[in-house]
Structure formats: C-alpha cells, structure tokens
Design a protein around this nucleic acid. Sequence first.
DNA 1: ACGGAATCCGACCGGTCGTGCTAATCTGCG
DNA 2: CGCAGATTAGCACGACCGGTCGGATTCCGT
Lengths: 198, 198
Amino acid sequence: MSKGTETRARILAAAVETACLTGFNGLNLQPLAVRARLTKSGLYAHFGSKEALQVAALERAAALFQQTIVAPAKAEGAGLPRLRGVFHRWLEWPGRAGLPGHCPFFAAVVEFDHDEGLVRARLTRLFRDFQQVIEQLVASAVRHGHLPEGTSPTQFAHELLALRYAHHWAQDFMRDPQAMMRTREAFAALVGRGRNVI
Amino acid sequence: MSKGTETRARILAAAVETACLTGFNGLNLQPLAVRARLTKSGLYAHFGSKEALQVAALERAAALFQQTIVAPAKAEGAGLPRLRGVFHRWLEWPGRAGLPGHCPFFAAVVEFDHDEGLVRARLTRLFRDFQQVIEQLVASAVRHGHLPEGTSPTQFAHELLALRYAHHWAQDFMRDPQAMMRTREAFAALVGRGRNVI
DNA sequence: ACGGAATCCGACCGGTCGTGCTAATCTGCG
DNA sequence: CGCAGATTAGCACGACCGGTCGGATTCCGT
C-alpha cells in the first residue's frame, strides 16, 4: 500500500468515526485533519470537495456494515437463523464494527432529507440494496417453512426496518434501558405472527 | 396582543416552518430574521440565545402537534377508533398542521442525539408525554375489548412509534409511493395480532 | 402630549466554514 | 544518486455563523 492510499485510509477511518458521532455534515475539514494527523489542505487534496469526502466516507461505512453485519450470515443456517442473525447483529451496529456513537445512516437520512446531491443518491441506493438483502432472507425463510406461506418479503422488510429505527430511538436517544428487550420482543412477535393460522 | 408578543409569534411561526425544512440547527438567525421581517439583532433580542430560540420553537411545534393531531381524538369514539384516529393523523403530520417539509421531532432526534442541553431535555420529555398518551389510548382500547386482553400498552406504543418512524423513512426519504399502503397494512397487522388466539 | 419603557436597527466582533493556489517535501523508480 | 511525480504544508479568500452594543425608533400608560 503506497503512502497516499494509506493516508487516505487513515482519513476515511477517522471520517467514519466522526460520522457516527456528528453525522456526515459534521465532517468538518479542520478537526478531521487533526484526527488524521494532517493539515486541512493536505486532507482536502485527497478528495477535492467536501461532497466527495462525504461520499467516500459513506462508501467506507457501507463496506464496514457489509462485512461486519451482513457477511457473517454465510456461516449461519439458511432461512430464519440467518435472518435472525443479521437482525440481531444489526441492532449492535455500529458498536460491533468497533465504531463509536450511533448509526451514521440514520443520521444521514435526516441530514440529506431535503437537499439533493450525490450523497443522497448514494444513500438511497445503499438502503435499497440492503432492503433487497433482507427481502431475500425473508423469502428464503418462507421457502424453508420458517415463516408462513404468503408472507410478503417487502412488507416484512419494511417492518423490520421499523423495529431497527425504533430501537435507535429508544436505545440511543431516549436511553431506555428496556429498549433491547422491547425490540427483541417485537421481533419475536413479527416472526411469530400468523404462525397459529397455518 | 401587544406588539412584542405579536412579533414573537411571527418569529415562532417562521421558526417552526424552518425547523420542518432544515431542522432546529437550521434555525440560523439571519435567514430566519428575513422570513420574520426583522433584522438579526431585532430577532435575537426576543430570545437572548440560539438555544432559547430552539426551545421556544420546539414548544410551539409541540403545541401545534397537540392541537392538530391529538386533540381531535376527543370527538372520536373511545378505544380503538380514537387510537386509530391519532395514528392516522400522526401519519399526516406536519402537513395537516399546514407546515411544509417533514416531522421536526424526528430531525431533532438526530441533531441532539449526542450533545446535552436544554433542547434535548425538553425533547425527551415531549416524547415521553406523547408516549404516555398513546399508552393510555391503548389501555382504553383494551378495556373496551378492541384489543386482546394482556396487550402491553408500553410495547404497543413502542411498535407504533416504529411504524411512524419507518413511514417517515419510506415516504419522506425513500419517496416510496407505496409507503402509506405498507404503513396502513402494518398498523392493521399490529392491531389484529393475537385476535385469533383470544 | 409627554416621558419612560419596550422594541428594533445597523454596524461590528471573533471564529469557523469550504475552497482555491503555490511552494516545499517526500517517495519510488531508473 | 537524481529526477519526476505524488503528496502535503502554508496561506489567503469570501461567506456565514452566533453574539454584542449603542442608539434610534416606536409604543403605551398617564
């Protein structure tokens, strides 16, 4: 790894950490440069614009999410075990990836809600891709008989994201000590729903 | 209404609108002053600090929410109809209150996630109060036999917020045209859950 | 109508932001 | 070693930020 790409990696590591703490709009050049042991202009030369830096940090965070939360599913039993594994690891993101703070993607949803641009476009794609991953896991669980026939993967994925979102609210913002328990119970209810009507 | 309080009301009206579009950190003094037909220092004299302005705007938004979304429940049938009414009006907030943009409270969750302060403290209280309102509606629905005996109001309120959060994500950020349909279906499933095991 | 208080303005402060530009330094190859 | 190109530092810019202050203006009770 050449010097340049190593520095770039150091910058992005600091950027992802910062994004977890203060969002992607909080990626201010001066403090970030200090964290990455550079000057502001030295850092800037690697990206050329703040938006490019934000996109790169988003990409890096997504890669971390993929390898920390999604990828381990390959080692789990197909169907419901795999779905349950991804969801429960998802609940521990971003801590499980060694990152501080809270989920940067949820922060980005608010930050780039109104203003268009590259970051928003990339973010919606990332969400859609992950949504499809969930849907495939659900469909697989249905095929394995772990979920009732007729379960809509899209609807299920939507409600799963709802649970993760509410968990973020209860755990990270409200600091409710019972947040995890409630989320697990809600997941169990979602999975168990309809079982008795088979 | 004296001149001062009238101006203050004009400022807060502009502030709530702005908060719906750019969040409470987006309440920058200069642009807000222009919207309220004042100079920056003239506006500032009414609050004394940006934090006080944010708190006042939060208070105003909460009052609007109360009278637009919650209060109409008094005219609805006790129990499930009342709960359903509040939830469906909630889905149309803040548009139903004549406000542009999206829910300012969800934006505030991200903005004040990490930094402590008056705004965060006030916001958690507002959330807790509304959560209690929901829990009482749920408890009433249980008493009327509209929801299964043994339904936990706290758990139900948690999952209801989850649905509203996911709706915000799907509708406002992802701009999914089927968001409303999916949210209504999820609500129906949440209400109907367990019915068949009574 | 008058005087004191409430209200508002305009100019200004120190600081931070993203963004360019040039010059110095460093790295890796021949 | 020496040179070319990649890499970083240094510096300055215009814009915007929240906040301050003195004075002008307007309001309102008497």
